[in-house]
Design a protein around this nucleic acid. Structure first.
Lengths: 156, 156
DNA sequence: AGCCATATGTTATCACTGTTAACATAAAAG
DNA sequence: CTTTTATGTTAACAGTGATAACATATGGCT
């Protein structure tokens, strides 16, 4: 009967746990870095038990993959809604700067081979979108070096 | 008295543990990836107890930093002993391909701020060495995307 | 030579993590 | 309403970084 009440806090079933976990994961990864994202910490932030996430993500890699995928959707959206080459370049670098953890995850080495394959489509699309704005290799190099704190002296 | 014997296996003191740990770390990181390098696994490979490494490296980050530093020395050596722009580019990409884990560590995000600062000198030197060979940003972008399994379609 | 400070090992021990199994409950389908 | 299924919980396991307490070499000093 408790479940009939509309108070969210006492529900046995969360209702939107997958979404909440993803949000928590993205916040953690952007604010405190990739290593700060643990399955258990995401669970804590979502207010569920430490094993609950495994009903929605088979393992940590899968959660990381989901975060990366959402990142690509965001980035592609940003790039597609931008016109000039200069602005596309700006949008690309802004995304990397605004969501550093997510960005590193998106273009970093993934353990899971399936995730790498899936990611290729998105990366190919991104590469096409930035082709006239410097090219993916150069933009990614710039973004990655900046995020590593090594981009100060580099000019484009 | 046991110590007088020349048999290496029964020595209480290892004699060259720091070097051995570094070698084990580099092997692990290149062969099985960054996550495969743990303080304890390095200790096991060196044949010492799991706490012994802490006499030589305050923590895992310091060990990672030492690996990165050696990587820079190697890379800089490679680049300095190469002449034409084309060959420099080749040497750069070859290093990244041959020592993927080390490369990602060298140019990846580091938690330790001190390590980032120290690394800047090396990176600046590398940037100068490859300036006429495409530039660091582009070369790093290419190398990083390749290591992430995303470099197939990219041309330079 | 012997003595002592120091460097370098070892053995617990702690808190935290990923992950799974066994169990509990709510929601959905019949 | 009953049964199945989805989605939680709790308890456990092994592996990890790290530290403290202890043990043993090593090298300098007299």
């Amino acid at each position: 009967m408790r479940s009939r009440l509309r108070g969210q806090k006492t529900k046995y079933h969360h209702g939107d746990l997958k979404r909440t976990l993803l949000d928590a994961a993205m916040t953690l990864i952007d604010i405190r870095g990739r290593d700060a994202l643990t399955m258990r910490e995401a669970a804590r932030r979502a207010g569920v038990s430490e094993a609950a996430p495994y009903r929605h993500f088979a393992n940590l890699d899968e959660l990381l993959g989901a975060v990366a995928l959402e990142g690509f959707e965001m980035l592609i959206g940003d790039l597609e809604s931008t016109s000039s080459a200069k602005r596309i370049r700006g949008a690309y670098l802004a995304f990397a700067g605004d969501f550093p953890g997510r960005y590193q995850l998106m273009f970093g080495a993934l353990a899971d081979r399936k995730a790498v394959a899936q990611r290729k489509e998105e990366v190919t699309l991104v590469a096409e979108l930035v082709e006239d704005a410097g090219g993916l290799a150069t933009l990614h190099g710039l973004a990655a070096l900046r995020l590593a704190g090594l981009g100060d002296g580099l000019v484009f």
